[in-house]
Design a protein around this nucleic acid. Structure first.
Length: 158
DNA sequence: GCCAACGTTGGC
DNA sequence: GCCAACGTTGGC
């Protein structure tokens, strides 16, 4: 049951993994996601070539900081098997993994970050999953219109 | 640092 | 299967 969505938003705390980290590494496995719905989006719906907004959460000025592309579809998140990892899950086994992660590749860092405030100020974006009250999901679908609007805001230095 | 809104866990 | 307690997220 694949969604038609081809655009996504991934949250990350800039202090632990920022768009600059992704630029440096070029590609990364988006591991450590421990929420079932977020997992389902990654495992069932994210496809190679899907575009991704990288969102810095929990920072002084939260907002969309950059752009990435899905470079590999979801495989079991190896950190769930790693005893030394904070993401270790004792209920998971290699034959029956629980958590999955896609790989994303750096595309660009926005010259101007589009802040949460900016997003909230646009009537056009009022339907965004990110802006829904109480939405704490770290993997969220974005519509093409929303995606386009946000990139436009970035290009206008807004 | 606060706390509201969630999701998960575990006792019953 | 219910639901209270607990842990986490994330804006402010």
């Amino acid at each position: 049951m694949a969604l038609s969505a081809q655009f996504w938003l991934l949250k990350t705390e800039a202090m632990s993994y920022s768009i600059d980290d992704l630029r440096r590494e070029v590609k990364t496995r988006w591991d450590g996601v421990r929420n079932y719905q977020a997992r389902n989006y990654m495992r069932d719906d994210m496809r190679v070539g899907d575009m991704v907004l990288i969102y810095h959460s929990n920072s002084k000025t939260p907002g969309v900081a950059g752009l990435a592309v899905v470079s590999s579809s979801a495989v079991p998140d190896t950190s769930q098997f790693d005893l030394t990892s904070q993401y270790f899950d004792k209920k998971a086994s290699s034959t029956v993994p629980i958590w999955y992660s896609v790989e994303v590749k750096f595309v660009e860092k926005l010259s101007t970050e589009v802040s949460l405030k900016d997003l909230q100020s646009l009537q056009k974006l009022s339907g965004m999953a990110l802006l829904k009250k109480g939405s704490r999901l770290s993997v969220l679908p974005v519509t093409f219109q929303e995606f386009e609007t946000i990139l436009k805001m970035a290009s206008q230095g807004k």
